[in-house]
Nucleic acid binder design. Structure first.
Lengths: 252, 252
DNA sequence: CCTGCGGCCTCACGCCGCGTGAGGGTCAAC
DNA sequence: GTTGACCCTCACGCGGCGTGAGGCCGCAGG
């Protein structure tokens, strides 16, 4: 009623070497050895192996596995429950990813290009769609601020330099389009507006078209915000607002 | 509009070293370098990185990833579709595992102990519950035979030795119980019958209680099958059949 | 202008989880 | 007693990075 390495390997679908390795590091030591020194695995060993492989499949390191398996107070049912939870977690994560991929497919089909951040949201923030939905549902004011604060807190000086450089690029592009008489609701101005939105989304918070329009209003209404534009050319803030609105309408 | 390693690392949630590594092996070479030799990642690079991480997450080796990404005829949408399929596959697998864990929980709660094979079925045969359901639904005759043939085809000589040794143990246990007058519907005989069933399940096919009862009948009806028992003791095959039936009733 | 500091660079060694021999013993079958 | 399938113990190697060491770039502040 005990099994040789080869048999266990075949049953469990692993290599003999793997079993040797687990023996070496003390993760799974066969209960017995034959007179000739052959490893003999007993039922409890098989049981343990199953658990080892399970946790391994879910990405645990062998050391971590040793810890959870040797943790006393190990009621088998507890293990099963834990495994079930872990699986549900992983499934949830993958479903998120699938949803994100689907959104990406739709976006591609519509010809919308994503910002880097949006692309990597596939991998989730552990705090999945829930937060995103909330942020969409609510009027995003304070939430955007919160998000911006969280993100920028971790920026380095180099990041800030990049932010400024990018912002300057956008500003210049607006100024150029304005100076050359490109219409605010033309493709050129709208493209710059889109770059502007991407810039904000990239570095600060998810800037929806709604929020973007709000910002546009702010530039003409509040001199503290509009100064950057008015300082470059008179009437530029109004031009930007119009371009932003046109761009939002284009993507609606 | 290009990013430094550190920025990309932070955006994508990987280490700088990882990006260096991908550059080293040619998996992701930044589109540009600054005058000072600094890596500068462009938008397409970011795009590629996203895909790299995606496939990595799903367990592909970096070399495999290079192959799928450099495969020409690479329409982005095709990638997304492929990713979606892969995700659905993984989700399916995990759901199977979750289901198996749940069954294991029920089994444990009922006090039934599983055979090694049953335990490792968590990891699936790629051909999930479908086959198992069919096998249950149909009258298992030919199906059991098919399963047995598939399994035994891969047995080694050592396995066969183990099979014989185990069968001999069971036979001896039956003979001993019989000789010592243990009743065929008593715990002792029924336990041996259960071991017999486990033996078959372990090495040949899923032996349900129904099938097991059928086998019991076979032992008394067909001398080719009963000979093994009758050769040890006259009337043993009948004893075995009764024990098997009693054991089946016990588990019903 | 120089100094500091954060970020970048290139080696280069190390760790984990095994794969893959090499060299040799064991044991049932013929 | 020979064959062949299986087992053993070293021991080296590989993939995918982590983790310094030692040094260059470049902006800010004094």
């Amino acid at each position: 009623m005990s099994y040789s390495v080869g048999q266990v390997a075949r049953i469990a679908g692993v290599s003999v070497r793997t079993l040797h390795h687990y023996d070496e590091i003390g993760l799974l030591t066969p209960g017995e050895r034959s007179a000739a020194g052959y490893r003999r695995y007993t039922e409890p060993d098989i049981d343990r192996l199953q658990r080892v492989l399970f946790y391994r499949e879910l990405g645990f390191s062998l050391e971590e596995i040793a810890v959870v398996l040797d943790d006393p107070g190990v009621d088998p049912l507890t293990h099963l429950r834990r495994q079930h939870e872990l699986l549900r977690g992983r499934i949830g994560r993958l479903e998120q990813m699938a949803a994100a991929v689907q959104r990406a497919m739709e976006a591609t089909r519509m010809g919308v290009s994503l910002t880097p951040e949006e692309r990597f949201e596939v991998f989730g923030d552990f705090d999945p769609g829930k937060h995103a939905e909330e942020a969409e549902e609510r009027w995003g004011g304070t939430d955007a601020y919160e998000q911006s604060r969280r993100r920028t807190a971790r920026y380095t000086k180099d990041d800030w330099r990049a932010v400024k450089a990018e912002a300057a690029e956008v500003l210049e592009a607006f100024a150029a389009a304005f100076a050359e008489g490109a219409p605010a609701d033309g493709d050129r101005a709208m493209d710059v507006a889109e770059r502007h939105r991407a810039h904000i989304t990239r570095w600060f918070y998810d800037c929806t078209y709604e929020i973007h329009k709000g910002l546009g209003e702010l530039y003409v209404a509040d001199p503290r915000f509009g100064a950057g534009y008015e300082g470059v050319a008179e009437g530029l803030s109004g031009y930007v607002r119009d371009a932003v609105h046109a761009n939002a309408a284009r993507h609606a």
